[in-house]
Nucleic acid binder design. Sequence first.
DNA 1: GTCTATAATCAGATAGAC
DNA 2: GTCTATCTGATTATAGAC
Lengths: 205, 205
Amino acid sequence: MKTGNVVKVSFKEQMLQAREDAIIRAVNHLLAEKGFEAMTVDEVAASVGIAKASLYKHFPSKEDLACAAMVRVMQRAQDFLATLPPDAEPLDKLRTVVRWTMQLKLDGEMPSLPSQNSSLRATLMASKDYMNGLLEVSDILGAWIETAQATGRINAQIPAIAVLYTLYARACDPVLEFLKMGGQHDNDQILDLVMSTCFDGLNAR
Amino acid sequence: MKTGNVVKVSFKEQMLQAREDAIIRAVNHLLAEKGFEAMTVDEVAASVGIAKASLYKHFPSKEDLACAAMVRVMQRAQDFLATLPPDAEPLDKLRTVVRWTMQLKLDGEMPSLPSQNSSLRATLMASKDYMNGLLEVSDILGAWIETAQATGRINAQIPAIAVLYTLYARACDPVLEFLKMGGQHDNDQILDLVMSTCFDGLNAR
DNA sequence: GTCTATAATCAGATAGAC
DNA sequence: GTCTATCTGATTATAGAC
């Protein structure tokens, strides 16, 4: 009976986890597509294929839905950082990460949070999981930035925090969608262009 | 009697114009502060100090309110472009314009439109005034960009349209508010930093 | 044109049966 | 946990008096 019970509970929990994963993936896509304010809980429920009331059994509010999606993004970022060879050049790792985030954005997988919204910000700041993820990612990137500046690869005149913000901002750069809408370039060309303007600047060299 | 009539009508129209200007300024600030979705018509009315129903006598919808604010921004941009010395270096003029737009953003005077919202986008695209303003500004900037590329000041490898988008994107760059929130730098330092990352890039030279 | 009052709608959240 | 049905509040928009 013990084993039976354990297996049953584990299976149930697996189902629960799978359902919540499906919810978070749907939220992720909707956030990427329309942003937090324009996304409705009805849409999320319809997209997952369950009733709205069921959603609220998993997540207590719309803010918590968005927060869960952001926590997942942070987890994905940490996973990606862990795949990078530890002995690679910090600048190369930074470039790889930025390109990866922009690829996510182009693929409609990067949730975009209107940076002004207050209720969502409050939920995010209160989320231990989100803040931990953000801080860990920032620590890793920050260390790479400082090394890259010390070795003369990144302009040391720019405060490291400004470099970090500039890299984060690529994840929500409207230039990506503008160029994509233009239809004149494929995704790789767009990535090359924005990578170039980000690291080399607009000026001729 | 004719003169009296003319003066009276003109005065009325002046009052009307002044009222609408006040409305548009309030909308401008609220759009800059919270964005289109989070801004409510009640807030606009309260901010102007008139009843909500009166607002709707001037503008038929919330979208038209936002559109009027955007038209005003475009007009201000055109006015600013006209103040630049015609014989100055195109690159210098571009830099001056970008700095001006970022200054507006730092001052809470740059309305931020969630680029995804559909109902607002439809209204903007249907607005002759807005589209005209946008096209004229883009034409002027585009000509400067091409000249700057031809004279070797701006990287000619980058399509002019990508340069234009990159410059436009500075007007809603979240790096500005992040650095401002950090409190470590004053406005001029922030402008210098973002100008540098925009034109010189992150790489050391 | 401006106001008060109200309609109409939509979206976040909940009740309660199963 | 999932559902249907409903509540509640906020928000866009309008009616109608002055």
